[in-house]
Design a protein around this nucleic acid. Sequence first.
DNA 1: TTGAAAGCGCTACCAG
DNA 2: CTGGTAGCGCTTTCAA
Lengths: 344, 344
Amino acid sequence: MATRTPRDGRGAVTMQQVADALGVSLSTVSLAFRDAPVVAPATRERVRAEAARLGYVYHRAAANLRRGRSNLVGLVVPVITNPFVAQMATGVQEVLAEHGFVLLLANTGGSVEQQLKLVRTLAEQRAAGAVVIPVLDTPAADLRAAHAAGLPFVLVNRDIEGAGLPFVHQDDEAIADLAADHLFAEHHVRTVGYFGGVEAARPRRVRLARLRERAADAGVTFAQRWAVGTAPTPEEAYATARRLLAGGSPPEALVCHSDELAWSLLRALAEAGIGPGECRVVGIDGIPTSAMFSPALTTVAVDALGEGRYAGAVLLDELGVLDLAEHTERPAPPALVVRESCGC
Amino acid sequence: MATRTPRDGRGAVTMQQVADALGVSLSTVSLAFRDAPVVAPATRERVRAEAARLGYVYHRAAANLRRGRSNLVGLVVPVITNPFVAQMATGVQEVLAEHGFVLLLANTGGSVEQQLKLVRTLAEQRAAGAVVIPVLDTPAADLRAAHAAGLPFVLVNRDIEGAGLPFVHQDDEAIADLAADHLFAEHHVRTVGYFGGVEAARPRRVRLARLRERAADAGVTFAQRWAVGTAPTPEEAYATARRLLAGGSPPEALVCHSDELAWSLLRALAEAGIGPGECRVVGIDGIPTSAMFSPALTTVAVDALGEGRYAGAVLLDELGVLDLAEHTERPAPPALVVRESCGC
DNA sequence: TTGAAAGCGCTACCAG
DNA sequence: CTGGTAGCGCTTTCAA
């Protein structure tokens, strides 16, 4: 155990000191630590033991500098407090940790300026790459500059037109289909709407388009008035639902952009005395808590963890650390979880 | 703009190249970038302009190595998906970002081994310090070793006996008092219990003790049978509540360890046909979603964001970057938010 | 006010 | 299999 307590890494035990203590060369110690087959097993063990005795701690930053690559990866998200995002972040972290990478957390708070600043920080830090849920209306140039400077990106959930970056996203068509199948074929609803989500964001656009299409095919009326976007906060969504409700009856069914939003909608509905028999609600996400709601939320469960793991794998592939073709793990497809809010 | 796309930071534009392009010395460029008063403003501008033109990106890792300190700070938490944790993490991030630090995210998943591994990683990375929500039963030695090696820690929520580390936590007594005051003085309940939380964790212990004490003072019976711990998952909590309910009537009031757990409890209660008139429930956290629940959850709101910001400030104080005495910002005290679940 | 040179802790190359 | 040595890109004396 070291007797000093170096306040800042300076003054810590170095490889050189380990080498000196052992009477071997610096190179031998370095090689021993990286399990190079070229050092004798006995030597390696002696080095390891002496290092432990001296309280030596490997200095990865120095190694990174010398090797010209980094084991830091950025995770850029709008808000980590969003349950879906948090779950996805966990997946990214898991898979990157398996390959020795560490996550730099960056919350953009939905601001383009903040996002640009954080991406710049990642570049300065010489992160090996980044998994990014881009802020809406991100200028392609904001990421392209950093990308050109050697920072590989993987985009999640929202694409950026013209950025030409790898893009991982859920199967939004399948999500819409799952909801439509259940609502149209099982419940024979005659009108349907799509509630919430950020207007211009891709998931909303795709799901909305697909649901509209499916409705047309099934002879179901699409309630345009209820196809509004909302800011992604419970209060916003609740206020929007109230406003809509004040303007007339809801459609017979409402697909909701996220579980969180669905809770707000359900609350507004309940206060207006409208139950699952009158307006069937289907959420999207599959957050465990939704089972506890009253009425328990029927929802299309999305594999956020798997999504994150996959995004991480795609980045590792970009980094040349992993071959995506051989990494067969994929996120589970969306699945309908039937509970009470659809009137089942 | 650089024409090459260096894959790994190697090959990127360096200060030396900027200096050469300008015909000045490397030191001048370095000083110019750090706004040293010693370089002429005109020189500084020329350097900046040329750097931008060449696509130079400051290499913070190299600077860190040379200066012997780092702008990386670890955030070690059990699970980032916990809403309270995510909110706190955001606070930590905010305040550290204000001082130029970047967060390394580390999910321990509640495992002591994983936590030790992550702390080791932080030490290798030469992080400047770490904000840690320690896993239960963390051996003091696990953190002490890294601490001795120069990694300052701030503990949040759970203390580690004998670690002698700065410890930031909510005012759990005040939380219990707020719930007790309302339940005893307003609702005149005659029996009360405390539902959920991890058995041995400090927040639970303190709140439980205080509630018990307050109950005794007020002549309220404490329902020992309902003072059980749970794993912090909705399903677990729900199952526990069902089991307890099957064993007899609940007390007239239940204080619940977290909002998330309260939702599960409320669900079990509702299924048993027990409303807020019969068993009054008060949560702890103040998550926005709780307002959307039916019945809307009465809860003691805790300032998780502020808690995180404060923990960050304490760490900055440890690092000597900030003087805590002059940093007067403190988390808001807990506050009761009265809604429906208490029978109001 | 600017420049030259040493060195942070490590890796990689080349000799032995 | 082991040992010297030259840097990675930056900061920091110390001279000029």
